[in-house]
Design a protein around this nucleic acid. Sequence first.
DNA 1: GATGAATGAGACTTCATTCAT
DNA 2: TATGAATGAAGTCTCATTCAT
Lengths: 204, 204, 204, 204
Amino acid sequence: MPTKKKPQVTAAPARRRELLDRAAEVFAEQGYNATTVRRIADDAGMLAGSLYYYFDSKDAMLEEILRTFLDELWEQYDAVLAAGLGPSETFRSLVTESFLAIDRHRAAVEIYQNEAKQLIAQERRFGFLEVSQRKFEQTWLSTLERGVAEGEFRSDLDTKVTYRFVRDTVWVAASWYRPGGQYSPEQIARQYLSMVLDGIAVRT
Amino acid sequence: MPTKKKPQVTAAPARRRELLDRAAEVFAEQGYNATTVRRIADDAGMLAGSLYYYFDSKDAMLEEILRTFLDELWEQYDAVLAAGLGPSETFRSLVTESFLAIDRHRAAVEIYQNEAKQLIAQERRFGFLEVSQRKFEQTWLSTLERGVAEGEFRSDLDTKVTYRFVRDTVWVAASWYRPGGQYSPEQIARQYLSMVLDGIAVRT
Amino acid sequence: MPTKKKPQVTAAPARRRELLDRAAEVFAEQGYNATTVRRIADDAGMLAGSLYYYFDSKDAMLEEILRTFLDELWEQYDAVLAAGLGPSETFRSLVTESFLAIDRHRAAVEIYQNEAKQLIAQERRFGFLEVSQRKFEQTWLSTLERGVAEGEFRSDLDTKVTYRFVRDTVWVAASWYRPGGQYSPEQIARQYLSMVLDGIAVRT
Amino acid sequence: MPTKKKPQVTAAPARRRELLDRAAEVFAEQGYNATTVRRIADDAGMLAGSLYYYFDSKDAMLEEILRTFLDELWEQYDAVLAAGLGPSETFRSLVTESFLAIDRHRAAVEIYQNEAKQLIAQERRFGFLEVSQRKFEQTWLSTLERGVAEGEFRSDLDTKVTYRFVRDTVWVAASWYRPGGQYSPEQIARQYLSMVLDGIAVRT
DNA sequence: GATGAATGAGACTTCATTCAT
DNA sequence: TATGAATGAAGTCTCATTCAT
């Protein structure tokens, strides 16, 4: 039976993952454009051309990194949404899952933060980012609105602004969070929730 | 005898500002690396090479954009700090000044958010970014700590984490804020302050 | 007024033509694929990258070379067809025009012979080759058929096979014809016509 | 002790022929340079590297394809020449043998047409092509000259030009001939001979 | 002030080829 | 016999930058 074209997804999944993990780290640190394919190859102890045994292109690597992250994220989000919790509990769970995702896919999250805008503008290959983005907004927005409707969240806030506030607050954490640090993801989540829900000012 | 080579800072300051403003807009939208010098020149109705009459290099443009923004920001911050307000009022003023800066230098802020990390890593030309960053952290951190000490802010929060939370919360706004939109910078500042200080949950 | 993108068709038409002529020569001699962009640049006394000031890509050069040739060819053919000659005279004129085209665009013709098949298979950029090819076949075929109908050409020949025979006979000449050689294009045309029309055997 | 390295010519002659036939088909269709070794391997249901068990290199495959074709062609030609026929009959027989060769080695002939020029320029490995070419020219030229001398061919034609005319006329057929089509090789040969010898114009 | 032409370094990618297993 | 992984050379193309005019 003739081989399709290249190993791609089929062959050597372990080495592929390893390469992608390294690549993600560099993309996150230096930015996608500023990262040369040779740098990634060097890190992996091979020549630049050899990467193309595993991947079609630099873009393809980026795509797979982001897809893997988003797929897993949505698996968790969907489970939360399916649980039928109240808005406040849903909110807490989503935040917690987000920090857990940051813990597992730190580099991917950082890449997403830095590059998503430009990638979406390209249209072609990264359309799935926009799809995810829209679903994301809808998920959070409806949770906030439900919370306002049920009296769990303050009604004097613009939900759209609040959504952006919460979203940014959570994800930018990827830019400084380091797995294995002082706090576990759950602990960070609790601190963030405390701030976001109750504010940082002393209650009077 | 003055250097005969290039006017640079001296020549046609109005045209320079105009060029920098356009450049900032493109850098913000497409990312610094992804922006070609020709794209900037096209926008300005000249050829790529002609830009070098005004600026030494692409890097020099970026530097001037960021310096201009930071210089003005610190002018405002320093005025606030010199006013001798209490921690809570200082906090409010700093946040408000930040949103005003976003209003005036939206593109520069966005560039700063996207590129600062990598620029600092380069060391050479952009050392001033790190200096500013450190002064920034110290300013906010001491304000928060003073607030905790004086009983105006909750003492059960990690100030370092809180600092990052507040910092991110404010500046990421540049990625979606558009001057002349629904809310004035002061109104956005008030909403943010309300969320950050009092939280989004209903007080029980 | 801002420049569009690159000079391309607009700027320095003389240098462009010169570069295209050199390129055509090399493409014809070595084959398109086997010709490196650097080789063309070397021939022109510039660096490989400099070619991209004039042309978008290697493909774009090839396209322009072929288009220029075909456009001119069809100008001549159309004039012949518009003259309303009898089939035999039309035949003679078309053959003569073809040899004149070979004289003026020898390299382009040779490239066409060698590469057209593969270029057409690519579809995208070179669709115009197929269009021309079809129009070509139709032109010759109808001339032959008219000649048979009017009793000027033998009726015992398969016109399709005859068409290919004539077509190949004419164009392959580009592979050995050199302008400024022993015979003028018109003389070669006469010889070819003599052979094709009357055969090489002695009339009995 | 025989060389331990690679079987090459010795091993699995059937599989070799099969691989060469496939390779020839692809070389003919896409051009030698444009054909990747992997494409050939894919077609044969193996990996690119595996081809090197059978052949030393891509060039070696090409060489064997062309040699096989030319060896057989010359076997036939030599038989014709040894038969001691008159020039006209020799001519007819050579043309017929040529079309039979196209029938049996269509791909090889097409490759020869497309690549010979460049391969000969390389010198090294493909010197045998030039040898064959010279012998070919001499064979046809002497047949034509003999025909003129003996009054069987028109004496008002330049034999050199006529030679090229005939040669091209015959071999380009490989570019459109498909075995198993409407006409047998012999029938095509007859049509070509009719055209070449007697012309396409009606005898008056 | 600005253009037009060119440079040169470096980027991504392709591909024939090798070789241990 | 064949695979899987990698090499290394080379190719096309991009782009910041220069400089004579």
